[in-house]
Nucleic acid binder design. Structure first.
Lengths: 231, 231
DNA sequence: ACTTCGATCTCGTAC
DNA sequence: GTACGAGGTCGAAGT
C-alpha cells in the first residue's frame, strides 16, 4: 500500500465526468492497483477513485502542456470499460509504501436472515393468530420468506425485510398474485414485516390490501435468548 | 488526517456485529473524527469504519484483560446510535498526521437530473408531438419525471433514466396505474426514456404498452449549447 | 461470467 | 431534521 499526501487535481471521465480542483489530499494506491483520493472529511467514500483491475501510466509533467508550471507528475489510470482517472500532482508532502499482506477478512453476524429465523420461531410476534407452515416456501419466482396460517385457516404470505421499502412490497405483490392462482390454498393474505417501513412503501402496501407490521429486532432477540439481554 | 499502519484487531457492534482478526492494516482518522480501516485490496469500501459524528476514547492496554500481552493500545469509538467500534493495536509500523484543510469539493456533470432538465426544455426530442405540462409532477407514490401532452391531447407520463433497467419500468407502471384512476386526465400513455435501455427492460415495457425511447445525452447537450460541442 | 440483492451503504436534495 | 431516490455504488450469493 502506497500513501501519498500531495497537492493534486483530478479528472474522471467514464459513466460521468467529474473534476477536483487543486487541493492537498490523500492518495491511496492499494496492492491490487486500485486508487482512491480522500479529503479530510466525509464518510468512507473517496472523492474520486478507480477500482481494480486497472492500469496506471505515469509521466513527467510537460511544461508545454502546463502553462502554470505547478505540475510535477501526471498519472493516468484506465480500466477495462475505458473509464479514465487523471491525477496531476504538485507538491508531495509525504510518500511511503508498506507491505501489508493478505487480510484474513471480516466476519459478520446479525442481518436479515437472523430476523427471518426469529420470526419463523415465533410468528405470533407478527400477529397473534399466526402459525408457521413453512419458512422459505418455494415458488417459481422465488421463495416466500414465511408462509403462515391465520386463526381462521386462511394462508398468510409474510415478506421480511430489515428496512421496508417499495421494492419489498412489489416482491410480495408478485408472490401473492402467484399464490392466489393456486386454488388449493384458498384465500391468501399478505403481510409486510420490517424493523422500519418507509411511508411510501406503506401507502403502496395498504393500497393493495397488504398489512404492514413493524417489529423490534432487539426485543425479538431478547425474547428468544433472555440470558443475552443487557438490561 | 492521521494515518497509522499497525497490526490490529477490530470489533464492531451496532446494526450488526463484525470482527476482524489480527493483521496489519491501514487505520485512517479524518479531521471530522471518522475512522476507517483498510486492507491492501478491495474497492474503496473499508473493512470496518465509523462515520462522523463519533467520539473516540483511548486507553493503555491492561495486561489483566489481555492475557496474550500483544495489545499496546485500545481505542473505543462510539456514535450517537450507540454503535461501537473497538480497535486493539499491537505493533505500530507508522503513525503520521497532516493538516489538509477544507476541500473545494467535487464537480459532477452528466447525471439524470441534467438529462431530465434538457428533456423538459425540449420534450419533442422524445417524440415530436409532445409538449410539457409539468416536470416532477407529484403523486402520492412519488413524482412523475415529466408529465406531457401528446398532439391528440392525451397525457403522456415520461420516466427518465440514465440507464433504463427493469425497476424503472416498474416505477413508471405504478405511476400509470395511479394516473389512469384519475378520470380528469382521460387516457394516459407511458414513455420510458434513457440513454441505454436493457433488452429485458424493453421487453417488459413493450409488453405493458409502454414505449421506449433512447436519447443521446451529448447530442441533447449540443443542441442546447452548440458552443460547448467538442466535435 | 453474469445477475440479483442487501448494505454499519453514502450522498444529494426536497420537504 | 427527516425522508426519499440514485450511485462511477461495493460485495456476496446464486445461476
Amino acid at each position: 500500500m502506497r500513501l501519498i499526501i500531495a497537492r493534486c487535481q483530478v479528472d474522471y471521465a467514464g459513466k460521468l465526468t467529474a473534476h477536483l480542483p487543486w487541493a492537498t489530499r490523500l492518495i491511496m494506491v492499494k496492492a491490487d492497483g486500485s486508487i482512491q483520493i480522500h479529503a479530510d472529511d466525509g464518510a468512507y467514500k473517496p472523492l474520486n477513485w478507480m477500482s481494480a483491475p486497472c492500469l496506471m501510466t505515469r509521466q513527467e509533467a510537460d511544461p508545454a502542456l502546463d502553462p502554470s508550471g505547478q505540475l510535477t507528475e501526471l498519472w493516468s489510470v484506465r480500466n477495462r470499460s475505458g473509464d479514465t482517472l487523471q491525477i496531476g500532482l504538485a507538491e508531495i508532502l509525504s510518500d511511503s509504501a508498506y507491505e501489508l499482506g493478505r487480510d484474513p477478512g471480516l466476519r459478520k453476524d446479525g442481518v436479515e436472515k437472523h430476523l427471518q429465523r426469529l420470526l419463523a420461531e415465533d410468528p405470533s410476534a407478527i400477529r397473534s393468530d399466526l402459525s408457521l407452515v413453512q419458512r422459505e416456501y418455494q415458488t417459481p419466482i422465488g421463495p416466500v420468506d414465511l408462509l403462515c396460517r391465520a386463526g381462521d385457516g386462511s394462508y398468510v404470505a409474510v415478506e421480511v425485510k430489515r428496512r421496508g421499502e417499495i421494492d419489498g412490497v412489489e416482491q410480495l405483490t408478485r408472490y401473492l398474485e402467484l399464490l392466489r392462482r393456486d386454488s388449493l390454498l384458498g384465500r391468501v393474505e399478505g403481510v409486510f414485516v420490517a424493523q422500519q417501513i418507509k411511508p411510501q412503501a406503506e401507502v403502496v402496501a395498504l393500497d393493495r390490501g397488504i398489512a404492514c407490521v413493524r417489529v423490534d429486532y432487539d426485543a425479538l432477540r431478547g425474547a428468544d435468548h433472555p440470558e443475552e439481554r443487557l438490561f
